[in-house]
Computed example of a mutant assay.
Amino acid sequence: MAAIVVLSYPTIMPPRASSSKTTIIAGILAGLLAAGLGAFYLHQQSAPHGDHAPAARSQTTAQEQNARAVDALLALPEIKAWSAHIEKASGGRAHGAVMETSPETRLVDGVACYQLSFFESTPDAAHRWESFVVTPDGKRILVDDTVSGDLISLEQWRKDNAPMQRIATQ
C-alpha cells in the first residue's frame, strides 16, 4: 500500500502588475541573448579547432563598432527629442529604442555599415519611425528611405522631411 505524503504546500504569490519597462527590458535581454547565442553558434561552426584568440578579438571589435554606431545614432537631436516625446506622450508606457534591423552589414562606398532603426516600443508592439545606415566609427549617418531604397544624408533628410516637426504634430 502506497501513501502520499505532502511535505509542503507550494506558496502562491499574488500576481504583480507588469510594467512596460520590465517587458521592454525582458524583450531586449531575450533578443541580445538570442543574438549572442546565434553568434556563438556560428563562431563555433566556422572557427578552426586551434587558437580562438584572433576570432574572439575580431568579434569584440565588431561589437565595439556596433556600439559606436548605436551611440552615434542615439546622439542625434532628433532621436533624443523623439524619445523624450514618446516617453512623455505615453505617460511612460512607451519608449524610444534603437535596434539593429539586420544582422548583415550594408556596403556603402566600400564601407560595411550597420543597419539600425529607431522604434517606438509599446507593451504590444514596436513601431518603426525611421531607418538609418551608420558607419562602424559612427562618423557617417545616412537615412534609409525604405520606400525608394535610397540613402540620403542627414542634411537632406532634415531639409526634406523636417523630422523635428514630427513630434510637434503628434
Results as ranks from 00 to 15, higher is better:
D51R: 08
A62G: 06
K88I: 01
A72P: 04
E78V: 14
A84G: 14
A69M: 03
V70M: 05
A94V: 06
A62M: 06
L42M: 14
D71K: 08
G50P: 08
A84T: 15
A53E: 09
R68D: 05
L73V: 02
T61S: 13
W82Y: 14
A89Q: 15
A75D: 14
G92S: 12
G96P: 09
Y41V: 11
A67E: 13
H52Y: 11
S83C: 01
A84I: 13
Q44G: 02
R57N: 10
I86C: 07
R93T: 14
R93S: 11
K80L: 03
A81E: 10
A55Y: 11
A39P: 00
A89C: 02
N66I: 04
A81C: 05
S83P: 00
A72Q: 07
H43I: 07
S90T: 08
Q45F: 06
L74M: 13
Q65C: 09
H52D: 07
G50K: 12
N66V: 03
G92H: 07
A97G: 01
A39I: 11
A89H: 10
S83T: 15
D71G: 01
H49G: 06
D71Y: 02
A47L: 06
H85T: 12
L42C: 07
P77E: 11
T60L: 12
D71E: 14
I79Q: 01
A47C: 04
L76G: 05
A97H: 13
A39N: 09
L73K: 00
L42G: 00
D51P: 02
Y41W: 13
G91N: 10
